[in-house]
Simulated scan of single mutants.
Amino acid sequence: MNNTNNRKGRLKSPKYRILIGADLREFRQKSGYSLSDVSDMTGIPINTVIEMEQGVTINIDYYFEFAKAVSYPFRTLHSLKIPLKPAYELSQEKKARTFLTRKIRKIINNEGFLGEGKTVDEIIDELVRLNLIEREKTSSKEVSGVMRNLIEDNTVEVKAKIKRKNIYVRFDG
């Protein structure tokens, strides 16, 4: 079974929730607030406040409401030294696609680049011209895949199709 679909495995208290909960508890106590005070200020039941302090509660919104209620400085979260890495690494193929997506977004955000529309080949030509990619290391299939993702993100849309080639323009919404 894929780890991302394993609900029971996902819901176990990871270290960061335990750290944040303990930090919120310490801050609450130093500030003189009781569990009841936090409950009154947030509308969150006392038992849930206790579970947050233990790192059991999984709803991040509760932690933010708690933090706002006791004036906990959000930047303090950085001091917990929570590693900023995903639970699951992307494959090399997906990392390469992400890198290519950033490059394509860069030229798409250039006002007027897509203008009346560009084909995948024209997008590749522009990426090569700007020295953002090497032509021999990037296939039209890879660029087409990125463009499909950008369509899903409402960044671009297909204006027309000429001889089986999509003509991409900025999404007009």
Results as ranks from 00 to 15, higher is better:
Asp40Glu: 09
Ala96Met: 06
Val70Arg: 05
Ile60Leu: 15
Asn6Pro: 06
Thr101Gln: 11
Lys106His: 07
Arg102Thr: 11
Val38Met: 03
Thr76Gly: 04
Arg97Met: 09
Arg102Gly: 08
Lys81Gln: 13
Glu89Phe: 00
Lys85Ile: 10
Phe99Ala: 10
Ile108His: 05
Gln29Asn: 05
Arg102His: 12
Asp37Glu: 05
Ser34Asn: 06
Ser36Gly: 07
Phe27Gly: 01
Phe74Ala: 07
Glu53Ala: 05
Arg17Pro: 05
Ile18Arg: 08
Ile20Pro: 03
Leu19Ala: 12
Phe74Met: 11
Lys94Asp: 14
Asn109His: 11
Tyr33Gly: 09
Gln92Ser: 14
Ser34Gly: 06
Ile60His: 12
Phe66Ile: 02
Glu26Pro: 00
Thr101Ser: 13
Ile20Ala: 14
Gly43Asp: 07
Asn110Gly: 12
Glu53Thr: 03
Asp23Val: 03
Ile58Leu: 10
Ser34Thr: 15
Val49Lys: 05
Ile20Arg: 02
Ala67Pro: 10
Glu51Leu: 03
Ala67Leu: 01
Phe27Gln: 13
Gln29Tyr: 04
Glu93Trp: 00
Arg10Asp: 11
Ile108Val: 14
Asn5Phe: 06
Phe64Ile: 15
Leu100Thr: 02
Glu51Gly: 04
Lys81Arg: 13
Arg7Thr: 12
Lys15Cys: 01
Val70Leu: 09
Asn5Glu: 15
Pro86Cys: 07
Val56Met: 09
Pro73Lys: 12
Ala87Ile: 09
Glu26Phe: 03
Pro45Cys: 01
Ser39His: 02
Phe99Trp: 13
Lys15Leu: 12
Phe74Ile: 10
Tyr72Ala: 01
Phe27Met: 08
Arg7Leu: 15
Ser13Phe: 01
Leu24Cys: 02
Ile46Arg: 11
Phe99Gly: 08
Ile104Trp: 01
Leu19Gly: 04
Lys106Cys: 02
Glu53Asn: 03
Ser31Asn: 12
Phe66Met: 06
Lys8Ala: 13
Ile20Lys: 03
Thr76Ser: 14
Phe27Tyr: 15
Lys94Leu: 10
Leu35Thr: 03
Asn5His: 13
Ala69Trp: 02
His78Ala: 14
Leu11Gln: 09
Lys68Asp: 14
Met52Thr: 07
Asp61Ile: 07
Lys85His: 07
Pro45Lys: 06
Phe27Thr: 13
Leu24Arg: 10
Leu84Ser: 11
Arg105Cys: 04
Lys15Arg: 14
Arg25Trp: 02
Tyr16Asn: 13
Ala87Met: 13
Pro45Asp: 08
Ile60Ala: 14
Lys106Glu: 15
Thr42Phe: 09
Leu80Trp: 08
Leu100Pro: 04
Gly21His: 06
Gly55Ala: 10
Ser39Val: 05
Asp40Arg: 06
Leu24Met: 04
Glu93Gly: 01
Ser91Val: 03
Ser31Lys: 11
Ile60Lys: 00
Tyr62Gln: 09
Tyr16Met: 08
Lys30Trp: 00
Phe27Trp: 15
Tyr63Lys: 06
Thr48Gln: 15
Glu51Ser: 14
Asp61Phe: 00
Ile50Lys: 11
Asp40Trp: 00
Met52Ser: 05
Gly9Ile: 06
Ala22Val: 08
Thr98His: 10
Ile82Tyr: 04
Gly9Asp: 14
Val56Pro: 02
